[in-house]
Design a protein around this nucleic acid. Structure first.
Lengths: 213, 213, 213, 213
DNA sequence: TATGAATGAGTTTTCATTCAT
DNA sequence: AATGAATGAAAACTCATTCAT
């Protein structure tokens, strides 16, 4: 019985992998279910045993890939030789830099994720405390909260909204900068983005303490 | 001859109008060219005399609707009984508030514009100085520049990027707040957005002058 | 499984048959794929499971019908009560007479085959020695070669070209004579054609042996 | 009035020229009436003032181009430095060689003419004795007849059929040899064709006289 | 005579989904 | 569980021809 279960998992994974390759290669709209199944060596009908439809699969894929990117970024920071960032701003900046350089290398992934990433997805991570599926996301969010909490000079009653703004800003502006170099190529835009992140956090500075730049 | 020309303009307008109604009603993908033509009382082939394809029409529609929204916002500010805002922040805030309340009233328009609006579109307005087509947009951008210029405490070497960040932030976050009330309904989110705009501008404060919150 | 396979063969055959009827009835251009599928009681999409497109089907049809005609001619000669022709000229003449009288009876078939028959098609039969598909054609060509070989008074270093000339001459002239009776009806033209065949072969007579008319 | 007439002739000629360029360039089927009109600087509707439809124009074009090719061949023979061929075979061979080398240089023309040339066209030249339009064709046919007549060793009661066979043979075999080099490239095929022509004529040799090769 | 806007029938092809095996 | 044959709706786009001006 375990074998059967493993077999099913393998097929499911294979479908996800095939779909990802196809989506990033030729785009979501131009990928057919027949393509996906064929690339996994399965029959068309079999697809429907694992996913409701193409959209169902896509949503899961976006979630997985985003979480994975976040996890990679997080791990790369932990593994970095330098000091582990201890302020929220340093941490976020490091995360963003890592993620953007990843996406800079992989336009197809950027195109795929950006177009389909919605806050609703993160919401799940925020609200779901236990789900093994999004453990990484949840962990990231918890770390964000604790760093925010331990910042002596920050006071944010709505941490979710703050994160939301940051992510949306990063996501939407970088899409344009990386893919179209409009209004500027990423390299040129990055300092502005850093400054913006800084300012967004600054917006929640404790009235008493005046943070220095 | 003038008559013929007028007739053509009418048909073109009619197609745009029909398409807009259909797009906002049932969505872009689910609208066929046959639908659009039929709703305008024209033959399918006639559509192709006026537009290359559905995408061509959509792009023009997004541009028109966006420009129109901007113009309305601008005019409503000019016509407001209160004092005309004289600082950049006040002006932008007023614009944003007007636009967001409009979109709040018209989810379909929001859905249509947001998904299809790209900075490339604004770029045209920025770069094109003369084109009558985008006169309004250009005027808006000029006003933005002059307000920025006349701010005694702001110094921005890259005004285009600043505006880009603001627009992308507003656009992407409000899409989520208005349509899905995630992470918060617009009303609740608005103060955060205002603060974010303030902070973004603050990021370009002249070093000497310390602006107060 | 055998059942499924048989079923598929039947559908394929049915499509070919339907298409042939339609092509000869109203012409290739005026036959739509929808027509063909419908006449076979199948859905339009099903057509594409069996043929790439209309041209794909037509090519196969031309090949089948031509091979079939050749085979019939060959068999009718074998079955004829009279002596089996033992010279190349007698054999070719018998074949041509049979074929032309068939086409005389079936203008539509002539129209269909002639317009679409190219030497490239025969080439396949000539070069392919084994393919079951064109076994008949190949057999015909082999017989032609052996008759040529066994003719004591003929010596042709390029039998393929000789056959090519004969077939093209027959094909193109008869098209005109049968369908338009121009420059003469078939009956009147036939003696000339016979003489031409005779002369064409005579062109490859061994210098030594002086063949008699 | 003469001016108007000339103007009309010019437009007609222009349409023919444009169509020819388009037909040989992209093929008959892929050329639209709009293309033809546009290339002549005329409106689509104007086309219909000069031709019934695309087929009407094509037929005239085939006739014109064929006649022109024949005329060129004839003139080139007359202008050749060597002796003017005085036997029918020499004349036909020279004509064919000229025409084939022309078509070898211009595959597009070959493709256009061959596919659309029918004996019916020549028929007109044969039967019409006076028409200025096909004067050249008629002249060619008359010369053919007189050469045939003056051949001491030839006796053909049906000169039209003889010419028909020769033209169809040349036309159909060369189409394949020139365009597809099947079953052999033109150069290699040519000797066989010459021999075939010789034999076809030989088929009408007077019984008494035994022609020598 | 000339124009060119308008027509709309006509055709190909794709593909998500079902279901009998 | 898996297959893959069958479905048939759906949609884009072309173009010869007409006709009001």
């Amino acid at each position: 019985m375990g074998k059967v279960e493993i077999n099913k998992q393998n097929k499911r994974s294979s479908l996800l992998r095939s779909a990802y390759e196809l989506f990033t290669d030729r785009g979501f709209a131009k990928t057919t279910i027949a393509d996906i199944a064929q690339r996994s060596g399965l029959a068309k009908g079999t697809f429907y045993l694992y996913f409701k439809d193409k959209y169902d699969l896509r949503d899961e894929l976006v979630a997985r890939k985003s979480a994975q990117l976040l996890l990679e970024a997080h791990q790369s920071i932990q593994n970095a030789k330098g000091a582990i960032p201890d302020t929220l701003e340093a941490y976020l900046t490091a995360m963003i830099d890592y993620i953007l350089s990843s996406l800079q290398e992989n336009h197809m992934l950027l195109r795929f994720i950006s177009k389909n990433l919605s806050w609703g997805f993160f919401r799940r991570a925020v609200k779901t405390e236990g789900k093994a599926e999004y453990a990484d996301l949840s962990e990231f969010y918890q770390l964000y909260l604790s760093l925010l909490d331990s910042s002596p000079d920050l006071e944010c009653s709505d941490p979710e909204i703050l994160l939301f703004m940051i992510i949306e800003l990063v996501n939407s502006t970088c899409y344009s900068c990386i893919l179209y170099e409009t209004p500027a190529p990423l390299e040129e835009y990055l300092p502005h983005l850093h400054r913006a992140i800084h300012q967004l956090l600054e917006g929640y500075a404790k009235p008493s303490s005046s943070r220095q730049d």
